[in-house]
Nucleic acid binder design. Structure first.
Lengths: 199, 199
DNA sequence: CCTACCGATCGGTAGG
DNA sequence: CCTACCGATCGGTAGG
């Protein structure tokens, strides 16, 4: 009989599972994350692992949360001290490019990969991914509006158009980095953003 | 004993398999395309189906070819009659937007989905996808260079930068259509392209 | 093109 | 947290 684990130990095990899950899911997709393989890599049983989450879908939802946590830590939280408006928007985009450039997660942006994988389905995982995307666009929207009202972007700026184009730059960055290992891609992303964010 | 099928019949069956495979793979990914499910949907046995291709990987490669065939028919071949250079480039991009807007394949662009799915792996399927991407960029490059030498794009146009940004617009279009069902997305794509392709 | 089958793996559960 | 197990499904093969 194994000794009873403390609450702290349980949380630590849960975190170990999530960290490994996120690495696997980023590289090979949320569906490629299988219970058996994950258990083997962590040196524990499938049943022991599932005890922390209940079902595979619950594990997937926890991984989406964990990916959001990593992204929020690496991008918006890093530029919290910048004055809001255009300076903050520019730094948010730079942190975003840097996040993809440094390959914080293997396989690039978890959300890009997971969104492409789940956008044709229905269910709670898809909804969670769509929710995170919407939340992040809301963040960008706030910064852009502020930049416009500060007079740092043209008064006739089409806010949704700008969000669309910024996202396109980031999706292309992820594409060229992951598929082509194109080292020039971050430079291209920064150049495109500079043009988009200059009055 | 079933009657011996003619060569034409065999090819027709093969095409039926490919058409269905492409629809499944576009919507749910190349890995989600399983032999058992495909056989069930087509009303044939797994062995009969596999006889046409040999292995799952060979089927996946054939599906990539089929997707390329559909894309080439719907986009570049539709604008073959246009004068090369900028007019052709503009029409290629319009055909591309229209292709995504009409949802010719369920689940949007097969190559976007498959590339995101396989970019972190190695093997022949990944290589085939990378090859198609490279071929298509080559096409765009030729049109852009011609537009520059015709004087229809600025002489200091950064060709690779423009390819990067056009691809970003298309990736964003696919993203907003598939995840958000955003009907404004094609308009945003056209507007972004207009700005990119105006001297 | 079929039936019948293979070993491996899937997500998940019973019981401790 | 474990062992032992479940039915379903995976890609693939033998033999016709």
């Amino acid at each position: 009989m194994s000794p009873r684990r403390s609450v702290a130990d349980t949380l630590e095990t849960r975190q170990r599972i999530l960290d490994r899950s996120l690495a696997i899911a980023s590289a090979e997709g949320l569906e490629g994350l299988t219970i058996g393989r994950l258990a083997a890599e962590l040196g524990m049983s499938k049943a022991g692992l599932l005890g922390h989450f209940g079902t595979k879908e619950a594990l997937q939802l926890a991984v989406v949360d964990q990916a959001a946590e990593v992204f929020l830590r690496e991008v918006p939280r890093k530029v919290k001290q910048m004055p809001s408006g255009l300076p903050r928007l520019i730094e948010v985009c730079e942190a975003w490019v840097s996040y993809l450039e440094r390959e914080v997660l293997p396989g690039g942006c978890f959300f890009t990969a997971a969104t492409a994988e789940f956008d044709g389905r229905s269910g709670r995982v898809r909804d969670a991914l769509a929710g995170m995307n919407a939340l992040w666009r809301r963040d960008l929207r706030i910064h852009i509006r502020r930049a416009v009202s500060d007079g740092d972007l043209k008064p006739d700026t089409d806010v949704e158009q700008l969000i669309y184009e910024i996202l396109g730059v980031m999706l292309a960055l992820n594409h060229f980095l992951q598929l082509e290992h194109d080292e020039a891609a971050p430079r291209r992303a920064r150049q495109a953003l500079k043009r988009l964010l200059t009055k």
